[in-house]
Amino acid sequence: MDKRKMPVVKTVGISKRYGEGVGTWALRGVNFDVAPGEFVAIVGASGSGKSTLLNMIGALDQPTSGAVYINGQNTSYLDENALAALRGDTLGFIFQFHYLLNEFSILENALMPFSIRKGGPSRDDRQWVEELFCRVGLQDSMHCRPKQLSGGQQQRGAIVRALANRPKVVLADEPTGNLDSRNGAMVFDLLRELNTTFGTGFVLVTHDDRLAREAARIVAVEDGRIVANYCVEEVEREASQLRHSEK
């Protein structure tokens, strides 16, 4: 397969049950993949299994059955340390709350992935992270602790950290969920922009349909299943074709 076209993450029939016995089936046989540079929005009602899916993709949790491939590697064959390495190299995470480490400045937070994986950032890494801070408009607040910043600023700092290690895909669970609509729209636009400028893939869970419509692909989850999966462009093209033919 063409390496560039190979999905960065791919799930094959994954199911997830919480609890023993009957338990709660949060996912029921989900097939899902993300191509390099793709921007995917996952939508669905509360409790439909969006977060669970995202955690599986991020190898933060193991599926009850089925397989998750990251970079072509079956994660069920990897031990804890190899998984950590794979996460560190391939993926970035943004959560609903900023989840920056409070003891460190946001610059230190953003450089943390380099410290974890290779003992510290190189000059290049530093430049790249500083460029990211400029992109998100935090160039003047890099040395602040998270507590000294607003919610929107914190979330932008978290975005920089997620992108610092040049991941292929950033997984974001309701990154705008904790922000007001203006800040939410701003963060969302930023993600779109980073996607087009740097070609980083994004998978983001959102409750906000208006924001979801801006994504290139929308995946709808319901009751642990993917019930819709469509490209916004294609749909719009089809819609416009429909309109044309009606004329």
Partner: peptide, 16 residues
Amino acid sequence: SRDIGILKSMGATATQ
């Protein structure tokens, strides 16, 4: 524990 989760998501191993 939250910080630990974040560090793990950033690639920190259990040993670290």
